[in-house]
């Protein structure tokens, strides 16, 4: 399990640029980013090293921000990998709220982030199928 930084964005010009500039200015490297948007607001989801510190920086800049436990899974960079995971989770009765992917240093693998209804059950289901959920240490190992 890893911690995702979730940030509330008002639907107005320059919000994302502002957050990006704040983090850039603090020398924070973003590993993954996803935005959920509605007509009115957006939720920015970030994966970065030392999420607690990143969350503090964002909060200090006046944004509403929280840390969310999500699952990060390393999957083979091949067709059907995502379908496989979704099938495992859905067969095990775990709901997926949202998911997004990001590139890994290893060209043969990709990382998937899952926000699910039950992290423990999901991790157990995946590991039963030989799919490892990553810790922060795994993810940010140099």
């Amino acid at each position: 399990m890893i911690k995702q930084i979730s940030v509330f964005l008002e639907n107005k010009k320059g919000q994302l640029a502002d957050v990006a500039a704040i983090l850039g200015g603090k020398n924070i490297n973003l590993h993954a980013l996803s935005i959920a948007d509605t007509q009115d607001f957006g939720i920015l989801r970030l994966i970065a090293e030392n999420p607690e510190a990143v969350a503090e920086i964002v909060k200090d800049a006046g944004y509403i921000c929280s840390l969310t436990d999500v699952l990060a899974v390393s999957v083979p960079h091949t067709p059907g990998s995502l379908a496989h995971i979704v099938q495992i989770l859905s067969a095990g009765g775990v709901d997926i709220e949202y998911t997004y992917a990001f590139a890994s240093a290893d060209a043969d693998r990709a990382y998937m982030v899952f926000r699910v209804s039950d992290n423990m059950t999901a991790a157990a289901l995946l590991s039963g199928e030989g799919l490892k959920t990553l810790s922060e240490k795994d993810l940010f190992a140099k």
Partner: peptide
């Protein structure tokens, strides 16, 4: 104004509150 207590990382929950 949204308060930190009402914020969630899912659109579903915030929209439900709205």
């Amino acid at each position: 104004e949204l308060s930190p207590e009402q914020f969630s990382d899912t659109v579903k929950e915030i929209s439900a509150g709205e």
